[in-house]
Amino acid sequence: MDFASIIQSIFGSINVEIFFSKMLAGALTTLEIFFLTLLFSLPLGMLLCLGRMSHLKVVSMPVRLYLLVMRGTPLMLQILFVFFGLQPLFGIQVDRFSATIIAFSLNYAAYFCEIYRGGMESIPKGQFEAAKVLGYSKSTSFFKIILPQVIKRIIPPMGNEFITLVKDTSLAKIIAVVELMKVTEEYVNSAVNVVPFFVAAVFYLVMNGVVSRFFSVVEKKLSYYN
Protein backbone atom coordinates (compact mmCIF):
# COMPACT_ATOMS: atom_id res chain seq x y z
CA MET A 1 0.00 0.00 0.00
CA ASP A 2 1.43 3.35 -0.94
CA PHE A 3 1.08 6.57 0.96
CA ALA A 4 -1.80 7.96 -1.13
CA SER A 5 -3.88 4.90 -0.60
CA ILE A 6 -3.26 5.01 3.18
CA ILE A 7 -4.53 8.58 3.19
CA GLN A 8 -7.51 7.66 1.05
CA SER A 9 -8.41 4.79 3.39
CA ILE A 10 -8.43 7.17 6.39
CA PHE A 11 -10.71 9.60 4.59
CA GLY A 12 -12.99 6.85 3.24
CA SER A 13 -15.47 8.18 0.71
CA ILE A 14 -14.17 11.74 1.01
CA ASN A 15 -12.26 13.13 -1.96
CA VAL A 16 -9.12 14.34 -0.21
CA GLU A 17 -8.20 17.00 -2.73
CA ILE A 18 -11.61 18.64 -2.80
CA PHE A 19 -11.89 18.26 0.97
CA PHE A 20 -8.67 20.15 1.66
CA SER A 21 -9.40 22.90 -0.84
CA LYS A 22 -12.79 23.43 0.83
CA MET A 23 -11.24 23.37 4.28
CA LEU A 24 -8.66 25.93 3.20
CA ALA A 25 -11.38 28.16 1.79
CA GLY A 26 -13.25 27.79 5.07
CA ALA A 27 -10.10 28.62 7.04
CA LEU A 28 -9.69 31.70 4.89
CA THR A 29 -13.18 32.83 5.81
CA THR A 30 -12.35 32.12 9.46
CA LEU A 31 -9.28 34.34 9.15
CA GLU A 32 -11.34 37.06 7.48
CA ILE A 33 -13.76 37.04 10.38
CA PHE A 34 -10.83 37.12 12.79
CA PHE A 35 -8.99 40.03 11.20
CA LEU A 36 -12.02 42.13 10.30
CA THR A 37 -13.36 41.73 13.84
CA LEU A 38 -10.04 42.98 15.24
CA LEU A 39 -9.88 45.80 12.72
CA PHE A 40 -13.22 47.19 13.93
CA SER A 41 -13.36 46.13 17.57
CA LEU A 42 -9.91 47.26 18.71
CA PRO A 43 -10.51 50.97 17.96
CA LEU A 44 -14.19 50.76 18.90
CA GLY A 45 -13.21 49.27 22.25
CA MET A 46 -10.87 52.21 22.83
CA LEU A 47 -13.68 54.69 22.14
CA LEU A 48 -15.94 52.76 24.50
CA CYS A 49 -13.21 52.78 27.12
CA LEU A 50 -12.86 56.56 26.93
CA GLY A 51 -16.65 56.84 27.22
CA ARG A 52 -16.75 54.36 30.09
CA MET A 53 -14.12 56.39 31.97
CA SER A 54 -15.77 59.75 31.29
CA HIS A 55 -16.82 61.77 34.30
CA LEU A 56 -19.99 62.71 32.43
CA LYS A 57 -22.78 60.36 33.50
CA VAL A 58 -24.64 60.88 30.21
CA VAL A 59 -21.64 59.37 28.47
CA SER A 60 -20.56 56.67 30.90
CA MET A 61 -24.01 55.31 31.74
CA PRO A 62 -25.01 54.33 28.17
CA VAL A 63 -21.58 52.72 27.73
CA ARG A 64 -22.08 50.73 30.92
CA LEU A 65 -25.45 49.54 29.70
CA TYR A 66 -23.88 48.57 26.38
CA LEU A 67 -21.17 46.57 28.16
CA LEU A 68 -23.75 44.87 30.34
CA VAL A 69 -25.78 43.72 27.34
CA MET A 70 -22.86 42.72 25.11
CA ARG A 71 -21.05 40.80 27.83
CA GLY A 72 -24.16 39.48 29.49
CA THR A 73 -25.83 37.83 26.49
CA PRO A 74 -24.50 35.03 24.26
CA LEU A 75 -22.52 36.03 21.20
CA MET A 76 -24.61 33.49 19.29
CA LEU A 77 -27.77 35.35 20.19
CA GLN A 78 -26.17 38.59 19.03
CA ILE A 79 -25.18 37.07 15.70
CA LEU A 80 -28.69 35.74 15.15
CA PHE A 81 -30.16 39.07 16.17
CA VAL A 82 -28.06 41.08 13.72
CA PHE A 83 -28.86 38.69 10.88
CA PHE A 84 -32.57 38.08 11.53
CA GLY A 85 -33.60 40.94 13.80
CA LEU A 86 -32.54 44.07 11.95
CA GLN A 87 -34.89 43.54 9.01
CA PRO A 88 -38.21 43.32 10.93
CA LEU A 89 -37.19 46.00 13.49
CA PHE A 90 -35.38 48.58 11.39
CA GLY A 91 -35.86 47.45 7.79
CA ILE A 92 -32.12 46.89 7.38
CA GLN A 93 -31.06 43.69 5.65
CA VAL A 94 -27.44 42.65 5.98
CA ASP A 95 -25.82 39.63 4.33
CA ARG A 96 -24.57 36.71 6.39
CA PHE A 97 -20.94 37.70 6.38
CA SER A 98 -21.58 41.37 7.26
CA ALA A 99 -23.92 40.30 10.04
CA THR A 100 -21.15 38.15 11.44
CA ILE A 101 -18.59 40.93 11.33
CA ILE A 102 -20.99 43.44 12.88
CA ALA A 103 -21.96 41.13 15.73
CA PHE A 104 -18.38 40.02 16.44
CA SER A 105 -17.05 43.58 16.32
CA LEU A 106 -19.70 44.94 18.65
CA ASN A 107 -19.24 42.03 21.05
CA TYR A 108 -15.44 42.00 21.12
CA ALA A 109 -15.30 45.80 21.44
CA ALA A 110 -17.03 45.37 24.80
CA TYR A 111 -14.38 42.95 26.02
CA PHE A 112 -11.53 45.04 24.65
CA CYS A 113 -13.05 48.08 26.33
CA GLU A 114 -12.76 46.40 29.71
CA ILE A 115 -9.21 45.26 29.00
CA TYR A 116 -8.20 48.80 28.02
CA ARG A 117 -9.88 50.15 31.11
CA GLY A 118 -8.01 47.73 33.34
CA GLY A 119 -4.80 48.83 31.65
CA MET A 120 -5.57 52.54 31.99
CA GLU A 121 -6.47 52.21 35.62
CA SER A 122 -3.26 50.37 36.37
CA ILE A 123 -1.16 53.34 35.19
CA PRO A 124 -0.01 55.33 38.24
CA LYS A 125 -1.69 58.71 38.67
CA GLY A 126 1.77 60.29 38.73
CA GLN A 127 2.22 59.54 35.04
CA PHE A 128 -0.83 61.60 34.09
CA GLU A 129 0.26 64.34 36.50
CA ALA A 130 3.85 64.49 35.25
CA ALA A 131 2.62 64.78 31.67
CA LYS A 132 0.12 67.46 32.64
CA VAL A 133 2.63 69.59 34.53
CA LEU A 134 5.09 69.32 31.63
CA GLY A 135 2.40 70.87 29.44
CA TYR A 136 1.31 67.86 27.36
CA SER A 137 -2.14 68.27 25.91
CA LYS A 138 -4.64 65.59 26.86
CA SER A 139 -4.33 63.82 23.51
CA THR A 140 -0.52 63.97 23.32
CA SER A 141 -0.29 62.71 26.87
CA PHE A 142 -2.61 59.86 25.95
CA PHE A 143 -0.86 58.79 22.77
CA LYS A 144 2.76 59.37 23.75
CA ILE A 145 2.83 58.64 27.46
CA ILE A 146 -0.15 56.62 28.59
CA LEU A 147 -1.06 54.38 25.64
CA PRO A 148 2.42 52.85 25.15
CA GLN A 149 2.40 51.81 28.80
CA VAL A 150 -1.17 50.54 28.59
CA ILE A 151 -0.30 48.40 25.56
CA LYS A 152 2.49 46.69 27.45
CA ARG A 153 0.23 45.94 30.40
CA ILE A 154 -2.67 44.55 28.36
CA ILE A 155 -0.64 42.15 26.22
CA PRO A 156 -1.44 39.07 28.36
CA PRO A 157 -5.24 39.56 28.55
CA MET A 158 -5.28 40.57 24.87
CA GLY A 159 -3.53 37.34 23.97
CA ASN A 160 -6.24 35.36 25.74
CA GLU A 161 -8.95 37.32 23.98
CA PHE A 162 -7.39 36.81 20.53
CA ILE A 163 -7.20 33.08 21.13
CA THR A 164 -10.83 33.02 22.21
CA LEU A 165 -11.74 34.95 19.06
CA VAL A 166 -10.07 32.35 16.82
CA LYS A 167 -12.28 29.72 18.39
CA ASP A 168 -15.40 31.92 18.52
CA THR A 169 -15.32 32.44 14.75
CA SER A 170 -16.93 28.99 14.56
CA LEU A 171 -20.14 30.54 15.89
CA ALA A 172 -20.67 32.13 12.46
CA LYS A 173 -21.81 28.70 11.32
CA ILE A 174 -25.15 29.39 13.02
CA ILE A 175 -26.15 31.71 10.17
CA ALA A 176 -24.55 29.47 7.55
CA VAL A 177 -21.37 31.39 6.92
CA VAL A 178 -19.11 28.88 5.26
CA GLU A 179 -16.11 29.03 7.56
CA LEU A 180 -13.96 26.22 8.81
CA MET A 181 -16.47 24.75 11.23
CA LYS A 182 -19.30 24.81 8.72
CA VAL A 183 -17.23 22.97 6.12
CA THR A 184 -16.19 20.43 8.74
CA GLU A 185 -19.71 19.77 9.88
CA GLU A 186 -21.02 19.31 6.37
CA TYR A 187 -18.35 16.74 5.62
CA VAL A 188 -18.95 14.87 8.85
CA ASN A 189 -22.68 14.74 8.13
CA SER A 190 -22.56 13.76 4.50
CA ALA A 191 -19.63 11.36 4.62
CA VAL A 192 -20.43 9.89 8.04
CA ASN A 193 -16.75 10.20 8.92
CA VAL A 194 -15.28 11.95 11.97
CA VAL A 195 -11.82 12.52 10.52
CA PRO A 196 -12.74 16.10 9.42
CA PHE A 197 -13.08 16.96 13.13
CA PHE A 198 -9.43 16.15 13.67
CA VAL A 199 -8.39 18.08 10.60
CA ALA A 200 -10.37 21.12 11.79
CA ALA A 201 -8.76 20.85 15.22
CA VAL A 202 -5.33 20.97 13.61
CA PHE A 203 -6.34 24.07 11.63
CA TYR A 204 -7.47 25.87 14.79
CA LEU A 205 -4.41 24.76 16.70
CA VAL A 206 -2.10 26.08 14.00
CA MET A 207 -3.89 29.44 13.93
CA ASN A 208 -3.71 29.76 17.68
CA GLY A 209 -0.11 28.65 17.66
CA VAL A 210 0.64 31.61 15.41
CA VAL A 211 -1.36 33.93 17.67
CA SER A 212 0.50 32.77 20.79
CA ARG A 213 3.83 33.09 19.05
CA PHE A 214 2.94 36.61 17.95
CA PHE A 215 2.09 37.61 21.50
CA SER A 216 5.21 36.16 23.03
CA VAL A 217 7.32 38.03 20.48
CA VAL A 218 5.54 41.31 21.24
CA GLU A 219 5.83 40.68 24.97
CA LYS A 220 9.54 40.12 24.61
CA LYS A 221 9.92 43.25 22.48
CA LEU A 222 8.25 45.33 25.18
CA SER A 223 10.23 43.81 28.03
CA TYR A 224 13.02 46.38 27.70
CA TYR A 225 11.43 48.18 30.65
CA ASN A 226 9.16 47.35 33.52
Binding site: P124, G126, Q127, E129, A130, A131, V133, L134, G135, Y136, T140, K144, I145, P148, Q149, K152, Y225, N226
Partner: peptide
Protein backbone atom coordinates in the same frame (compact mmCIF):
# COMPACT_ATOMS: atom_id res chain seq x y z
CA UNK B 1 4.51 76.29 31.07
CA UNK B 2 6.17 78.83 33.37
CA UNK B 3 6.42 76.13 36.02
CA UNK B 4 8.31 72.90 36.49
CA UNK B 5 7.54 70.38 39.21
CA UNK B 6 9.79 67.72 40.64
CA UNK B 7 7.82 64.98 42.35
CA UNK B 8 8.73 63.05 45.43
CA UNK B 9 8.54 59.77 43.50
CA UNK B 10 10.08 61.07 40.23
CA UNK B 11 7.30 59.98 37.86
CA UNK B 12 9.69 59.41 35.00
CA UNK B 13 8.16 57.89 31.87
CA UNK B 14 9.23 54.22 32.13
CA UNK B 15 8.89 53.40 28.44
CA UNK B 16 11.30 56.16 27.44
CA UNK B 17 15.06 56.11 27.90
CA UNK B 18 16.72 58.74 30.08
CA UNK B 19 17.50 61.05 27.18
CA UNK B 20 14.04 60.53 25.65
CA UNK B 21 12.48 61.49 28.97
CA UNK B 22 14.28 64.81 28.74
CA UNK B 23 13.74 65.26 24.99
CA UNK B 24 10.13 64.18 24.61
CA UNK B 25 8.48 67.13 26.37
CA UNK B 26 10.63 69.50 24.35
CA UNK B 27 9.61 68.01 21.03
CA UNK B 28 6.00 67.25 21.93
CA UNK B 29 5.14 70.35 23.93
Amino acid sequence: LHLGLVFQNFNLFPHLSVIQNVMNPQTEV
